[in-house]
Simulated scan of single mutants.
Amino acid sequence: MSPKSRLYTLVKAWKNKPFQEVRDACGAPWLGLSSQALEEHQSWSKRQAISHEPIFNCKGTKLTGSLFRPLLAATDMQLLRLFMEGLDTISYWYQGGRFIPGILPIPTHALASAEYVDAFSDLILNSRLPVGLVALGMQSLPEKDLADSCKEGLLRMRRLGVLLHLINFTGEPEQLQWAQEMQMEGIHLDMNQLRDQEISHDVLAKIRRSPYSPTQIYASNVALVKDLENASNWQIDHCYGGLMMAPISRHQMLQINDSRIAKAIFSLHPHQHLNPNGDK
């Protein structure tokens, strides 16, 4: 039996079990971990890895989501375990009284695989999370021979109430077509590319052409005060990066106070000072 088959068999076996068992199962022998490695993994979990990048609205007045960074570089053997971990974290926030949507980046070949999509579906259903809390981040467009399978995988995810995002958006016409055809809820572009004018404002205008479009724009790598001004001028909906807040642990995410963050970000904006009488 291949490693992928063992992963899929285990996921199927969890369908009717409480979702909290994911943490215990992550170190099970099927992963090929020794008892020492299992202890190290559990210790790592307790230390609360710095894995979650907070996302805010453009003005920094509200926490709007989180990007689970470990999935960006996950291998096939790590993919399902990290996906479980991401879902478990969203559930942790939800049980802690915070409605924080989590974006879980997934490689395209996994979205085109019926086995992986079956596994993702089982895990999402088993999490019992409300609609709108789980988003899949498609990391790139598929090869032409995988396009139909990938679209089918995305549609299956949507039928479960999962939001669809396109990561690493560069403004290519094919990417724009996918975003519009699949009615993706979010596209993520790099602020460095906007800064260097590698993405034209016309592309952003096309995304907003229809007032009924569900697609919102996310800007990553926001690092300069000027980036926030540009994000506002270009009507970008969400921002994340070093200027907003560095990646944090899942427990720290619960402690984010929107008003404190907004005050800190507002202090970076050039703004007119008021005199003691309150006039400009």
Rank of each mutant, 00 (worst) to 15 (best):
Y116S: 14
L224D: 13
A119G: 13
S200M: 03
S267A: 13
I167R: 03
Q48I: 00
H269N: 11
R128T: 04
G97K: 09
I55T: 12
T89D: 11
I50Q: 10
I248H: 06
C150L: 14
R81P: 00
M191S: 07
L87S: 04
H269M: 14
N277T: 07
L133R: 09
N16E: 10
L38V: 13
N230T: 07
I256H: 05
I103T: 07
P214V: 08
E152H: 11
G96D: 14
W44H: 13
H273L: 13
D88L: 13
M157D: 02
G137T: 05
A231C: 12
H201E: 03
L71E: 01
D122W: 01
S66Q: 05
D88Q: 14
A112N: 07
T215M: 04
I187A: 01
G65H: 03
H52E: 07
A219M: 05
Y218G: 02
K280L: 13
K17V: 06
L164A: 02
Q252A: 13
V11A: 12
G97N: 11
R47A: 08
T64M: 14
A49C: 05
D118F: 03
P29H: 13
Q197D: 06
G65V: 05
P29T: 14
K151G: 09
L154A: 12
I265R: 01
N16D: 10
S140G: 07
L71H: 01
L31P: 00
H41L: 14
N168R: 05
P18L: 04
V117S: 12
K46S: 12
L136N: 01
Y116C: 13
V203F: 06
T9K: 08
R69K: 12
D118P: 00
D202K: 06
A28K: 10
E143G: 09
H201Y: 03
Q197T: 03
A246N: 13
G186S: 03
I100A: 13
T215Y: 04
G96C: 09
Q42M: 05
E181K: 02
Q42Y: 09
L164H: 04
S249I: 04
T9I: 09
K226Q: 15
I199M: 02
I124F: 04
F83W: 04
P270F: 08
D118I: 00
Q36K: 15
